[in-house]
């Protein structure tokens, strides 16, 4: 790009930044007070969880989270529509393979822990799902072309699991008279845990599949010079 033009853009953007900073400063100075914090914390005991962020994500604003799962799904479907995945990397050497052998189970275990702890401390479905996805990334980097994922048919069910369980629970609650995504009193805790478990699996599989970067192939990739490694799946 032309130097003068980029300088001009730079000046304009800098002016915008100054304006935004001024507006932001004067707004903070007004201090509008509590915003939603006091209300969100006050009603925390009714929400079924004791971590306020999880309460917002899975209860007060559960609808946003359902749609966010749909966004993740849309991204993966878009990636799959672009064609088959590229061949994987070379199989790992012995040192890396040995490390992968214990890092991957550890990541899955930690994911499970984060999912559980999300109810009362920082953690939750997305953090847990991100770890599962990372386990898949590590497997692919170590030479497993499919990132340890099951067949395409299974993957299709797993990636819709999160949004599926979420929206079905929501609709069932609407049908039984509580209202869409309004948990009955006292039932919130296990419903949230159920949704979060399904979401964790879906997020983990979706992230790993997105890293693979193409439609899963049933048979051996035709252009691949490398055979995928035989057994890391057995080790999961």
């Amino acid at each position: 790009m032309n130097r003068d033009l980029s300088l001009l853009i730079g000046i304009l953007v800098a002016l915008l930044a100054v304006l935004l900073l001024g507006v932001f400063h004067s707004t903070l100075a007004l201090d509008p007070g509590q915003r939603l914090a006091s209300l969100a914390l006050e009603r925390l005991p009714e929400s079924g969880v004791s971590n306020p962020v999880t309460a917002v994500l899975l209860n007060y604003r559960a609808y946003d989270t359902l749609l966010e799962l749909a966004v993740l799904l849309a991204a993966l479907l878009g990636i799959w529509s672009l064609g088959p995945a590229r061949p994987g990397f070379q199989p790992a050497g012995p040192a890396l393979a040995a490390m992968v052998d214990w890092v991957v189970p550890l990541a899955i275990l930690t994911g499970g822990y984060l999912l559980w702890v999300g109810g009362h401390a920082p953690g939750g479905a997305f953090q847990a799902g991100a770890l599962l996805g990372a386990a898949g990334v590590i497997l692919r980097l170590a030479g497993n072309a499919g990132a340890g994922l099951p067949s395409e048919a299974w993957q299709r069910w797993l990636i819709v699991l999160g949004a599926g369980v979420f929206s079905l629970i929501g609709l069932l609650l609407a049908l039984t008279g509580y209202g869409f995504l309004s948990y009955p009193p006292g039932q919130a805790k296990w419903l949230i845990l159920l949704i979060e478990t399904a979401a964790t699996i879906a997020i983990g599989v979706t992230l790993a599949a997105a890293y693979v970067g193409g439609r899963p192939q049933m048979a051996q990739p035709p252009r691949s010079p490398l055979a995928p490694m035989a057994d890391p799946e057995a080790k999961r």
Partner: peptide, 12 residues
């Protein structure tokens, strides 16, 4: 409707 049964401004 406000989803989740929390009313405004907490719900969506």
């Amino acid at each position: 409707i406000v989803l989740g049964g929390w009313g405004l401004p907490l719900g969506i």
